[in-house]
Amino acid sequence: MLKKLFILIFITASIGAFGQSKFIAKNAYISFYSSTPLEDILGESNEAVTILNAETGEIGFQALMTTFHFKRALMEEHFNENYMESAKFPKARFNGKIEGFNKDMLTAPVANIKVTGLLNVHGVEKTITVPGTLGIENGKLVGTSKFKVTPEDYGIVIPAIVRDKIGKEMEVTVKANYLPFGK
């Protein structure tokens, strides 16, 4: 009896999930990477929050700069204190929209998408268009993106002495496993 009840609740919950208008990922992955002659620089956060509006195809991302983790403590310190000024600009944000969005994209296998929106890093806002993928992978809605940003565009000053080593562009990787979110 109890088992049947559970199954019933489960089925109802799953049907309910399809009717939800929002998807959320609270522990989305964001990293940025730069290869240098001395050492590869990789900062990773598993604490970005993203919401995908299933009606409109709008996507929002937010990340706390202090949650980026580096292999070396010194890199983390430099990142927060010298480059990102995390105390002054604690969050990075992206608000965009999937180009040519339709609801079938949320139930279809993983396919390529393009997202255009405003990226706000270090207090500077810029419109960007980035490639990505979206679709069902192992029964879950997964979104990914990989694109390049130039720190200088966001007013991030890299001292001349290390500028050549860090590289002009950083590769940003994003991955989110979305769950239906009721409200």
Binding site: E47, A48, V49, Q62, L64, T67, P90
Partner: peptide, 11 residues
């Protein structure tokens, strides 16, 4: 404590 993003992040 890392701050607040819908929830309080500690890591």
């Amino acid at each position: 404590c890392k701050g607040y993003l819908m929830e309080i992040k500690v890591s």
